[in-house]
Computed example of a mutant assay.
Amino acid sequence: MNVADKRAAALDALSERDGVLVAFSGGVDSSLVAALAHEALGDRAVACTARSETLPAEELDDARRVADEIGIRHVEVEFSELDNPDFVENDGDRCYHCRTMRLGKMFEQARDLGIETVCDGTNASDPGEGHRPGLRAVEELEVFSPLLAHGIAKSEVRELAGDYDLSVADKPSMACLSSRIPTGIEVTEERLSRVERAEGLLRAWGFTQFRVRDHDGLARIEVGHDELDRALDADFVRAARTHLREAGFDHVTLDLEGYRTGSVSPAEGGVSVFDAEYPTSD
């Protein structure tokens, strides 16, 4: 089945619903689902974004902008993962606890709106991408994942998002802020806040694919391989050292292996880092 046929099948499946609420982050996957739902159902489709400490303010702004771009009704709910001690503990099932709480709020909002179906942006590539405990929550809560159900893989998601002229079609994946904290280190508001401030600097400097990992006070900066040269610029290094220390980090490092998913613990990949104690003069 080609991508056009998959899109048509997803539209048909959505159009059979009385209404849907889309768990909407503003990323490319959920944005495509929102666009499909809006095309299939019009005003009977609603996008819902959950605000919490793990969602960067810039991502919330993006979600609002993209919902307006699509033309879909957009609502927001608020909750705190930090209210759940299982989430705070940050074991291997952190994403399961987070997704269960987040989707639970979606179902509450859907009930308030008289909507029976909650959709999410899980795509056909997600189940094959290693340990994904969040997918267990999707299955347990019986969330409808139209991209997964109709075999739409990540590359096809971006292709279809481009067909809809969505501004996020090429947006890099952006996991929640808690993914920057290694397993076993408690997730706290302080750690989430300093990661958000640190990543704000990289965004301001124009980096497009990046993470700042918080190793209990040591910041490990990852940037895309094609951006490593820029990260080694003396002016940026000085700015990163100053800004990240002001944000609350004790040490600032750059990962010379560059950005990659699932690398939150240095022990997992023999990560090479250096402490960014650049001289103050050239």
Score class of each variant (00 low, 15 high):
92 G>M: 12
154 K>A: 02
41 L>M: 03
55 L>V: 14
177 L>T: 10
34 A>W: 09
91 D>R: 11
257 E>C: 02
162 G>Q: 08
270 G>P: 11
78 E>N: 08
246 E>T: 14
186 E>G: 09
88 V>N: 04
33 V>P: 00
28 V>D: 07
42 G>Q: 08
263 S>Y: 11
148 L>Y: 15
119 C>Q: 03
16 E>L: 10
156 E>S: 07
33 V>G: 00
66 V>A: 00
251 H>L: 11
41 L>H: 00
17 R>C: 11
52 S>Y: 06
123 N>S: 10
181 I>P: 03
22 V>Y: 03
149 A>C: 06
177 L>R: 06
138 V>A: 00
250 D>I: 03
190 E>H: 11
162 G>D: 09
75 V>C: 06
238 R>Y: 06
249 F>T: 01
158 R>N: 10
199 E>G: 05
176 C>W: 08
186 E>Y: 13
135 L>E: 00
73 R>N: 00
9 A>M: 09
58 E>K: 06
262 G>P: 02
34 A>P: 02
74 H>I: 04
252 V>K: 02
274 F>N: 05
155 S>C: 04
82 L>Q: 06
247 A>L: 14
240 A>Y: 09
67 A>W: 03
223 V>E: 03
237 V>H: 09
9 A>V: 09
47 A>H: 08
264 V>D: 00
120 D>Y: 06
